[in-house]
């Protein structure tokens, strides 16, 4: 019995013989031969998505923040997604883009952590942020080269071997770059200018205190909540400081919101001039 609903009620080949497709140039859908000759199909668009990840270096560490929302198109599908996670002892990874691909990345990095940190636990080698970033770059670039991308933009934060802060980006194409303030998605347009006030030049992070960095990032989360329709005001903020385990602060809220500007907005589906 063929259980595919598609073949129900259709003449059985065993009884009537195979259908003659040559008659009237009928299309031969359902023909196995033809189906396997389809081009290979891969997911070509993100489904449930997370919006910006925002991050900045300061004197002796890095701060990373991302909200907890998972959008299904314009639907608020989830409001409890943690998009920043720890890899190894002192590295965190923040992911925007497709949530299921993000979870795949999370599984890969969990596995990496076990193979690198548990199997050889004599000490000596540690899995650090540059290693995690390099690994992720290979994964994302190889997937894009198979035309089956992991639809994400990723920020890796942690420390170099010489204990200086490390912050670097990689996306679904395998494109990478590093600097002292990195935001993905909408944040690249709205939050980067705010953060670059603190670090106009790359090396300026050395003059930024943790408090300044934190305040700037929290401000970014608020500004993004004002203008990014796919964002929420509930977010997670992670502080990395040299020699300490990453500090996760969950369920933070954008405080002191002020929506008075909204009444003056023109266009974008509101009042027209």
């Amino acid at each position: 019995m063929n259980h595919d609903p598609y073949v129900w009620g259709r003449p059985d080949d065993a009884v009537y013989g195979a259908y003659n497709h040559a008659i009237a140039n009928a299309s031969s859908h359902g023909n196995v031969q033809e189906e396997t000759s389809f081009p290979k199909m891969n997911s070509q668009q993100p489904i449930i998505t997370g919006t910006s990840v925002n991050s900045i270096k300061f004197k002796d560490g890095v701060i990373v923040a991302a909200d907890n929302m998972g959008s299904y198109g314009s639907l608020l599908r989830f409001n409890n997604i943690e998009r920043i996670f720890k890899v190894g002892k002192e590295t965190v990874v923040g992911v925007s883009g497709d949530i299921s691909d993000f979870q795949q990345i999370q599984r890969l990095l969990d596995e990496l952590e076990i193979t690198e940190e548990i199997y050889d636990n004599d000490g000596g080698h540690n899995l650090r942020a540059p290693n995690v970033h390099e690994y992720l770059t290979r994964v994302l670039y190889n997937r894009r080269s198979k035309m089956d991308p992991l639809w994400n933009a990723v920020v890796v934060a942690g420390f170099n071997d010489d204990k200086t802060p490390f912050l670097r980006y990689v996306d679904l194409l395998g494109v990478t770059y590093g600097l002292s303030a990195i935001c993905t998605g909408f944040g690249a347009h709205l939050a980067i200018p705010l953060l670059r006030q603190l670090v106009p030049d790359d090396k300026d992070y050395q003059n930024v205190t943790e408090e300044q960095a934190r305040e700037a990032i929290i401000n970014c989360m608020k500004v993004l909540f004002y203008r990014d329709a796919r964002s929420s005001d509930k977010f997670t903020l992670v502080t990395l400081k040299q020699g300490q385990p990453p500090k996760f602060e969950k369920d933070l809220r954008c405080e002191n919101q002020n929506w008075r500007f909204a009444k003056d907005l023109v266009g974008y589906g509101s009042t027209q001039l």
């Binding site: 609903p5 299309s27 891969n42």
Partner: peptide, 22 residues
């Protein structure tokens, strides 16, 4: 060709192409 239970069969592939370059 429409089928119940949305088991839709395509005789030609629908192409959305991911652009692997930037």
């Amino acid at each position: 060709v429409a089928s119940e239970y949305s088991a839709e069969r395509h005789s030609v592939p629908i192409e959305h192409r991911f652009n692997p370059y930037s």
